[in-house]
Design a protein around this nucleic acid. Structure first.
Length: 279
DNA sequence: AACCCGGCCAACCGCAAAGAT
DNA sequence: GATCTTTGCGGTTGGCCGGGT
């Protein structure tokens, strides 16, 4: 009964990922795409189980991830979807581009749940925690909130209104608020002429990483090796994985983990380029 | 300064679903 | 159709960090 845990093999590493492991995983996945997760750690030279690799990629390393707290609109969407779908975090996440199910789940448990309770709303049923008097006719009257919570209630009344009103009036999700890369946005440049085009990529929000390049924009040192990959890698088969992993240090030299997502957006461009060329 | 406590979030675990044979 | 393998999902945990005492 029950399957063996995939990570119980002796010698497999657990716990937090190191920058080096991240590099290996990203390098491998960018070079080879997402294939069989079980084979990924071996091919990428990682002492992790495939599951752990997949999780790390989908929750943290994926180029299209959006970081930071959920916006009010996103939060509203989550509440609305949760009412419809329950704890189906992955379904909910699919409506919020750039957000992961794990992120939403965490945010729900740490922020939204609490918020709803303070508002007198049961986060499970999305109904008032404190039942209304039976004679209430039509519509649900304002639920009585314990005195200690009234202040909070007042402060967030606007939020209550918006979140609860979404149940009836919410029509379309505002995914346009999420800056995502679309195929149309990507001008596929000739392989050696990409730097200029990507300089205005939508990643400006995280452009604080000026630590080494000083230019405040694209780190060409970093970008060039990446964008030059396809030329050689298209010629590689899976047997050439070693080449990919040994090529990684070239990009690793200027890998900026303090603000990796500026870079990741660039990787996304590369990834699209790569995929399209493959196709 | 030291300790405690709670919040937060990355990562793990176990199960279920989907896919392959 | 049965069995096995792989992937995906949701619940839970563990450790770090900041604020309070």
């Amino acid at each position: 009964m029950g399957r063996q845990p995939c990570c119980d093999k002796v010698g497999l590493k657990k716990g937090p990922w190191t920058a080096e492991e991240d590099q290996k995983l990203v390098s491998f996945l960018l070079g080879n795409g997402q294939c069989c997760w079980r084979a990924v750690p071996k091919l990428a030279g990682l002492l992790r189980c495939g599951k752990s690799c997949r999780l790390r990629w989908t929750n943290y390393l994926r180029p299209d991830l959006k970081r930071g707290l959920l916006s009010e609109t996103e939060e509203k969407t989550v509440i609305d979807l949760h009412e419809q779908l329950g704890n189906r975090w992955s379904k909910i996440a699919s409506h919020l581009p750039g957000r992961t199910d794990n992120e939403i789940k965490n945010h729900w448990n740490t922020h939204i749940k609490k918020k709803l309770r303070k508002m007198g709303i049961d986060p499970v049923t999305h109904k008032p925690l404190y039942p209304a008097p039976p004679l209430a006719d039509g519509g649900s009257p304002e639920q009585k909130v314990p005195e200690e919570e009234e202040e909070v209630e007042e402060k967030s009344s606007a939020a209550v209104e918006s979140s609860t009103s979404t149940c009836a009036g919410h029509d379309v999700f505002c995914t346009d608020e999420v800056p995502m890369l679309h195929l149309d946005d990507i001008v596929l440049p000739p392989p050696c002429d990409v730097v200029g085009d990507t300089a205005g990529s939508p990643a400006e929000s995280s452009s604080t990483s000026t630590s080494s390049s000083g230019g405040g924009g694209i780190d060409e040192e970093w970008l060039l090796p990446i964008m030059e990959w396809p030329e050689s890698m298209y010629l590689m088969g899976l047997d050439d994985v070693d080449m990919v992993t040994t090529a990684a240090p070239a990009m690793a030299t200027s890998w900026e983990f303090e603000d990796p997502f500026n870079a990741y957006q660039r990787i996304a461009l590369f990834d699209h380029h790569h995929e399209l060329t493959w196709a």
